[in-house]
C-alpha cells in the first residue's frame, strides 16, 4: 500500500511541463513576430521612426555644440578632432617603430654576414 500511495508533486515536478510549454510558446511567438517584422510595412515604420529619432539627435547635438561654443568650451567635435590627430600620430609612430625593427634586423644580418666573411677571410689567409 505504501508503494502505491499517491506522491505529492514537488515544485521541481511541476516545472518540467511548464518549462516545455514556455519553450514552445517562446518559439511560436518568435516565429510570429519575425513574420510581422519581415514585412515592408514594418520596415517602412522602422525607417520613419529612425529618421525622426536621428533628426532629434542631430538637432540636440547641434544645440549642445552651439551652447558649448558660446561658453568658449571645447565641443565633442573638437575633442574628437584632437583624438583623431593623436591616433594618426600613434599610427605613424607604430609604423616608424616597425620600420626601425626591420632595419635593425637587416643591420644585424649584415653584421653577422660581414663577421662570417671576415672569419672566412682570416682562415684563408692563415
Amino acid at each position: 500500500m505504501a508503494e502505491s500511495a499517491p506522491r505529492i508533486p514537488t515544485p521541481q515536478d511541476l516545472l518540467g511541463p511548464w518549462r516545455q510549454m514556455a519553450e514552445q510558446a517562446e518559439q511560436q511567438w518568435n516565429q510570429y513576430l519575425n513574420q510581422a517584422m519581415g514585412t515592408e510595412a514594418f520596415a517602412g515604420m522602422m525607417g520613419r521612426y529612425m529618421e525622426g529619432y536621428l533628426a532629434f539627435q542631430q538637432s540636440l547635438a547641434r544645440n549642445v555644440e552651439r551652447y558649448m561654443q558660446s561658453l568658449n568650451l571645447p565641443t565633442r567635435t573638437d575633442i574628437t578632432a584632437i583624438g583623431e590627430r593623436l591616433a594618426s600620430m600613434e599610427a605613424q609612430l607604430s609604423a616608424l617603430a616597425a620600420e626601425q625593427r626591420r632595419l635593425l634586423k637587416k643591420v644585424e644580418a649584415l653584421e653577422a654576414g660581414g663577421g662570417a666573411k671576415k672569419a672566412r677571410g682570416n682562415g684563408n689567409g692563415a
Binding site: 519553450e23 510558446a25 511567438w29 518568435n30
Partner: peptide, 8 residues
C-alpha cells in the same frame, strides 16, 4: 523578441 520576455 519573445525570448527577451521568456522565463525559460
Amino acid at each position: 523578441p519573445a525570448s527577451e520576455f521568456s522565463p525559460v
